[in-house]
């Protein structure tokens, strides 16, 4: 475990050199938030109106949290990196190292995005407060639970994207798989909460990655309940185990196909 923490720490140290660049990339987040804020303002003729159980403030905070999770993740970069590692043969440098590639990839990317996550969270909260004038009512303990579920959500996302990147062992370009995955998460989990979808679809989404990677933490932030928190955390732990298993399986199958010429 210590070696993975060390990998994570060195990535954090590297990223600390680029704090300004990270803060600047917040503008992209702000644009998206501004558009969605306008959209919800247009849809809610009265701010206290309830649409599918959400007030306008709750909907805006929901989107702020899901967008923080999504924009911090840097999924495209991760998928491209793993895909390129496989295609270029760079992955062979990791085979003879005393660590597990999946663990390395996870700790490396977590270290990569931690600073960004902290900056985006602070700026996102400030932006939300400026737009809406208040925060949702949360106790210290519930804030800790939201942070914990957010970390677990990010871990699951990284593992899912890693498994998509590892598809490059079998199909040269994993990019298109990532596009479809990202659109599913964006449409079904980032822009709308699960309650916005038809009942039949809601039942499916409650068991899908959407529930654990975006809906869970955001729902807890806007409408916290201990029942929900326990169900989200249990689902996330199960998903961590499943996604880690999938990654390991694809990696073990794929690594046997490596054929590198030269070096």
């Amino acid at each position: 475990m210590r070696k993975y923490l060390f990998i994570m720490k060195s990535q954090i140290m590297t990223n600390l050199q680029y704090v300004f660049n990270i803060a600047f990339s917040f503008i992209g987040y702000l644009i998206m938030l501004f558009i969605l804020f306008n959209l919800w303002k247009y849809l809610y003729s009265d701010p206290s109106q309830l649409i599918n159980g959400y007030t306008m403030k709750q909907m805006t905070w929901y989107v702020i949290i899901t967008e923080i999770l999504w924009m911090t993740l840097g999924g495209r970069k991760l998928c491209r990196k793993i895909s390129n590692d496989v295609k270029s043969g760079n992955i062979t440098y990791n085979i003879n190292k005393p660590y597990n590639y999946i663990g390395y990839s996870l700790s490396c990317h977590l270290g990569d995005i931690l600073i960004k996550g902290v900056i985006f969270t602070i700026l996102g909260m400030v932006t939300g407060f400026v737009f809406l004038g208040s925060f949702p009512k949360l106790s210290i303990l519930s804030i800790i639970v939201v942070i914990l579920t957010s970390i677990l959500a990010t871990t699951i996302s990284i593992l899912l994207i890693t498994s998509l990147g590892l598809i490059s062992f079998f199909i040269e370009d994993a990019g298109p798989f990532y596009w479809v995955y990202s659109k599913i998460i964006l449409v079904l989990g980032t822009i709308f909460p699960i309650e916005y979808f038809p009942t039949v679809l809601q039942k499916i989404l409650n068991y899908s990655p959407v529930y654990v990677v975006s809906y869970g933490p955001a729902k807890l932030f806007v409408d916290f309940s201990w029942d929900k928190a326990i169900s989200v955390i249990i689902a996330q732990i199960i998903y961590v185990a499943i996604t880690y298993g999938i990654c390991s399986f694809i990696y073990k199958k794929g690594v046997k196909r490596i054929n590198v010429n030269g070096g």
Partner: peptide, 20 residues
């Protein structure tokens, strides 16, 4: 295979936003 899958998945990717 990569060429056509890139095109196909991009069409699919754009179509997903119709749901929104």
């Amino acid at each position: 295979a990569t060429f056509f899958s890139n095109i196909f998945f991009m069409v699919l990717n754009n179509s997903a936003m119709i749901v929104q």
